[in-house]
Amino acid sequence: SISSRVKSKRIQLGLNQAELAQKVGTTQQSIEQLENGKTKRPRFLPELASALGVSVDWLLN
């Protein structure tokens, strides 16, 4: 799922939720909701993929 991929990649990069949120241009709460499965397809998906160094396709599939 996107939530597990985001969380595992974030941890692999040594980032906390607030640091990832800053790179993406969103809030820590938005990252938390995404990782908890409350958000399925965030509006900041391209920025998120870029910050994590992955493709949008990788996040979604």
Rank of each mutant, 00 (worst) to 15 (best):
S1Q: 10
S1C: 14
S1P: 10
S1M: 11
S1G: 12
I2G: 03
I2T: 07
I2E: 03
S3C: 11
S3I: 06
S3N: 08
S3T: 06
S4E: 15
S4C: 12
S4I: 12
S4D: 15
R5N: 07
R5M: 07
R5E: 03
R5H: 04
V6Q: 00
V6T: 08
V6F: 00
V6G: 02
K7S: 09
K7C: 07
K7V: 10
K7D: 01
K7F: 03
S8H: 14
S8I: 10
S8A: 14
K9A: 13
R10T: 15
R10H: 01
R10E: 02
R10I: 04
R10D: 02
R10F: 01
I11S: 08
I11N: 08
I11T: 10
Q12N: 09
Q12G: 09
Q12Y: 08
Q12I: 08
G14W: 00
G14N: 08
G14V: 03
L15N: 03
L15Y: 11
L15E: 02
L15C: 07
N16W: 02
Q17D: 04
Q17R: 11
Q17S: 09
Q17A: 11
A18F: 13
A18I: 12
A18M: 12
A18E: 14
E19Y: 02
E19I: 05
E19L: 04
L20Y: 00
A21P: 02
A21R: 01
A21C: 04
A21G: 06
Q22A: 15
Q22I: 12
K23E: 08
K23P: 04
V24Y: 00
V24R: 00
G25M: 05
G25C: 09
G25S: 05
G25A: 05
G25H: 07
T26Q: 10
T27G: 06
T27A: 06
T27L: 06
Q28R: 12
Q28T: 14
Q28K: 13
Q29S: 11
Q29G: 11
S30C: 15
I31R: 00
I31G: 00
I31F: 02
I31H: 01
E32T: 08
E32L: 08
E32A: 13
E32F: 06
Q33L: 14
L34I: 13
L34N: 01
L34R: 03
L34E: 01
N36T: 11
N36Q: 12
G37S: 06
G37P: 03
G37H: 06
G37M: 05
G37N: 07
K38Y: 14
K38T: 15
K38I: 15
K38F: 15
T39S: 13
T39L: 15
T39R: 08
T39Y: 09
K40V: 14
K40A: 13
K40Q: 14
K40G: 12
R41H: 14
R41W: 15
R43V: 14
R43Q: 14
R43H: 13
R43N: 14
R43E: 14
R43Y: 12
R43C: 13
F44C: 08
F44M: 07
F44T: 03
L45I: 10
L45W: 05
L45F: 06
L45S: 03
P46L: 14
P46M: 13
P46Y: 11
P46E: 13
E47H: 08
L48H: 00
L48D: 00
A49L: 04
A49I: 04
A49N: 00
S50L: 14
S50H: 12
S50F: 12
S50A: 14
S50Q: 14
S50V: 13
A51C: 06
A51K: 04
L52T: 01
G53R: 05
G53W: 01
V54I: 06
V54N: 00
V54T: 08
V54K: 02
S55V: 05
S55T: 15
S55G: 08
V56H: 05
V56R: 04
V56G: 05
V56E: 12
V56C: 10
V56T: 10
D57Q: 09
D57W: 09
D57A: 09
D57T: 06
D57Y: 08
D57L: 06
W58Y: 08
W58C: 05
W58Q: 05
W58P: 02
L59R: 00
L59P: 03
L59F: 06
L59A: 00
L59D: 02
L59N: 00
L60M: 11
N61F: 10
N61E: 12
N61S: 14
